[in-house]
Amino acid sequence: MVQVEEPQDYVDVLQSHRGGFSFENCKRNAYLAAQAGIKPPTAMKSGTTICGIVVKDAVILAADTRATNGPMVADKNCEKLHYIAKNIYCAGAGTAADLQHTTEMMESQIELLRMATGTQPRVCTVVKRLSSMLFKYQGYIGCALVLGGFDVTGPHLYQIYPHGSTDKLPFTTMGSGSLAAMAIMEAEYNENMSIEEGKKLVAKAIRSGIFNDLGSGGNVDVCVITKDAGGNILRNYEKPNERKFRAQHKAFPKGTTPVIKETIMKLVSVETDVVMRD
């Protein structure tokens, strides 16, 4: 059972003045859940499929577009590819609010760094900043990221987990549909692919997530990052779930409703002899 801690002696008081992070409220929430049956609120999470690959001279990221809130689809065409810098993009899975906030904060940090140093931002800088931050929050920021970029040292692809661990890989998938997407990746990935072949592969992997994972759906977004052109998002690169039938609404013919009486009222009266002042 959880006890709310009260200071017992001067050591505890000293401890409480040491500063740093306090996870006291996490303990309190567990206590409330156990004792009073109060359930904490839920946030919008994107049960997601995201993936990324490194090909010959580009990094390609891709994502589905479904956002869910519990069992409900909250957004059918949301954007999960986030801009960090001209040459660095990131695909996110997890809590929607956390992802948006984290990537926007990183975008601003990196832009300030770019202006201060006058150099192109590097992928490893972003990875270190993200992982330090996520580690500091001990997994309570629900961000699972696939980060890709092309900098002065070449193409890079990383995956970052909510607890702050990182892996550098040639191909990766994350989110609830990662298993379905990884099956495609493991079978078909090859490091000498062309950009066009790469785009087809990531789209196929995401499609496999869209069709085989309940948490994923909607369309396929792709982002190609090259040395010269930087990042380029191809929004709705594939639309495998387009609406086939649209509800048809014919206009009602005149006379469907009989006119019982007709009244015309004058709502605005216009005076014509207005004198303009100078």
Binding site: A34, G37, P40, T42, G139, Y140, Y161, P162
Partner: peptide
């Protein structure tokens, strides 16, 4: 503690 799988207050 009765945390659910989709609970945001629980760590990942």
């Amino acid at each position: 503690c009765p945390y659910r799988a989709d609970d945001v207050m629980a760590p990942e």
